[in-house]
Each structure stands twice: as C-alpha cells, then as structure tokens.
C-alpha cells in the first residue's frame, strides 16, 4: 500500500469500500502494477506466467473468507488488458470484491479491460461485487470494457452485483454464464450514464442443466445526452427457469435501447422477460415536492432509490 497516493486511495474507497488493507486475500493493482498482494491458507493468488494477470485458487470447503482485487488507474493514457481467473473449489462459500476506478486528469484516454473468468465448483457459493467508477476533469476518456465469464458446476450459486454509477465515459460490458444442473445465478446490475457517456451491457446466460435458474435484473438511468444499450439474452436447454428484467429511467435527451431475447430449446424451459423504459412519473415528483423538496432534489431522491 506504500505506493498508493491520495487519489488512488480515494478510488479504492469508491470501488471497494476500502480504507485500509482488507482482511483475507487481496491483490491491489495500481497503474498497471501490483501494489500489494496477499494469499491466505485457503486462497492462493499467483501471477500468470506471462504476466497478463492473476490466478485465484480457492480451496474446496473454504467458508467465510473474502478476496479483494481492486484496480485503480490514475495515470492518463494508460491502457491495459488483464486476465483474472478464479477457481472456486467445491462447497466453498466466499465473497469476491472486484472493481475498477479511473481518475483521468490528462488529455489521453485511459482504459482498463478486465477479463474475469469464474470456474465455480459443485455446491459452491459466491457473492461477487463489482463497482466501476471514474473521476478527473481531463479531456481524456475513462474507458472500461469488462468481460465476465461464469462457469457454474452442479448445485453452485452465484450472486453478482454490478454497479457503475459515475464517471465512466465509455463501457462495453459482456457477461456470459453457463449453468449446470441446479446451479443458480442472480445478477443485479445498476447503471447510470450522464453527459455524453455510452454504456453497452450484454448478457448471455445459458441454462444447460435441469433445475438450473437465472434471475438477471438490470436497472438503469440515462441522463443528459448519454446512450445505453441493454442486451439481455437467456437460453434454456433443459428443465430450467430464467427471468430477466430491464427497468430504465430515461431523462433529458438520453437514449436507451433494450433488446431482450429468450431462446428455449427444451419443452420444460420456463423463460420470462420484462422490460420497461420511461421517464420519472410526474406524480412521484409532485409527491416529493409536497414534502418540501425542489424538483431537482425530488429527481435525485427518486433516482437514488431506484439505483439502490
């Protein structure tokens, strides 16, 4: 942590809620280099041989442990692609906190493309939290293109919380999941874009095993001139159940394209999609104004609640 400066610490706090060195295993990456790393008896973090990223191996049966792997970029013009692979042993029950914060005060674009792959063992449980954040007043863009691949073995469960609320100019996020029998995937995505930002989020969840299920919910707000495309696709190849929902608030001159798709290749697949795009209801603004808020304050409260 000695190498981290004030801006980096601020970013770290935004994306990982960290004020100090976390407990358990961690790998902190700052400006393209490892700033600190720690393995534990049950969680081993090793750099890949070609230096392109890290492998995180969690022993079977590991419970009540966490892994933090935040990334911060505070140097303008830095572009990196990082591969992180997680091997979660059978019956483990862990929390994984990832996230990337970019501060760009310069003229050049800064970009972090994190490719995360999860191999989740039988009956293992993972809670995954990923926050993306940008700051800095430079002309250079803050770009994040995360790819998340999840391979879930029988009876495993994964809860993903993906949040990108502020400051990322351009993002193209891809999430792919494949589920075996009785595996359960829950995704909660929260997205807000403003200014001239654009966000493209695509999900492809394949339910291969009987009894597998997925619940993918995306809530987003597009303000100013920002653009979003939400592409949620669920495939059912077995006796499974899938639910996707995109719920968006559109403001100012924002643009949102929601492209839901469902594909069933088995008569026992039950797939549901819900999608809604609309502006903040006038009655909601009026109600909060009768409680003494200005229109702008009312809007803020409604959006904060919606994205909570």
């Amino acid at each position: 942590m000695a190498k981290m400066d004030a801006i980096q610490m601020q970013l770290l706090q935004e994306v990982a809620g960290l004020h100090e060195i976390p407990e358990g295993a961690y790998n902190l990456r700052a400006n393209g280099q490892t700033a600190a790393r720690q393995s534990t008896a049950n969680i081993e973090i090793t750099p890949k041989e070609n230096g392109s990223g890290i492998d995180i191996r969690i022993k079977a049966g590991t419970t009540h442990e966490s892994v933090h792997i935040p990334v911060v970029l505070s140097e303008s013009g830095l572009k990196e692609t990082v591969y992180n692979d997680f091997y979660v042993g059978d019956d483990a029950d862990v929390l994984i906190v990832a996230g990337c914060g970019i501060d760009n005060c310069g003229k050049q674009d800064s970009e972090h493309d994190g490719i995360h792959r999860f191999f989740i063992g039988k009956n293992a449980k993972v809670r995954y939290v990923e926050k993306h954040y940008g700051s800095g007043s430079g002309d250079g863009k803050r770009i994040l293109n995360p790819v998340t691949e999840v391979y879930m073995d029988e009876g495993s469960a994964m809860e993903m919380e993906m949040v990108q609320i502020k400051g990322v100019d351009s993002t193209h996020r891809t999430t792919v999941a494949e589920l075996k029998a009785d595996a359960k995937l829950t995704v909660r995505e929260r997205l807000m874009t403003h200014g001239e930002q654009s966000a493209y989020s695509t999900y492809k969840v394949t339910l291969d095993g009987d009894g597998s299920s997925a619940d993918v919910v995306s809530r987003s707000v597009a303000r100013d001139h920002s653009e979003q495309k939400l592409d949620l696709c669920v495939l059912g190849n077995a006796a499974c159940s899938g639910h996707t929902e995109c719920d968006s608030i559109i403001m100012d001159s924002g643009r949102i394209l929601a492209v839901p798709s469902l594909e069933a290749n088995c008569v026992d697949a039950q797939l549901v999609h819900e999608a809604a795009i609309g502006k903040i209801a006038g009655e909601q603004l009026i109600k909060l104004m009768t409680l003494g808020l200005t229109e702008a304050e009312a809007e803020e409260q409604i959006i904060n609640g919606f994205l909570k």
Partner: peptide, 17 residues
C-alpha cells in the same frame, strides 16, 4: 404514489426534512 426503490424510511426522512 408508489416508488420503486424508495423505502418507507426514506419517505419519512424526506418528509421530516
């Protein structure tokens, strides 16, 4: 009026100012 996301506590807090 109903609000997606705002809790009863949020609403009371806003009301109390």
């Amino acid at each position: 009026v109903r609000f997606k996301g705002l809790t009863v506590f949020d609403l009371l807090r806003i009301a109390a100012g």
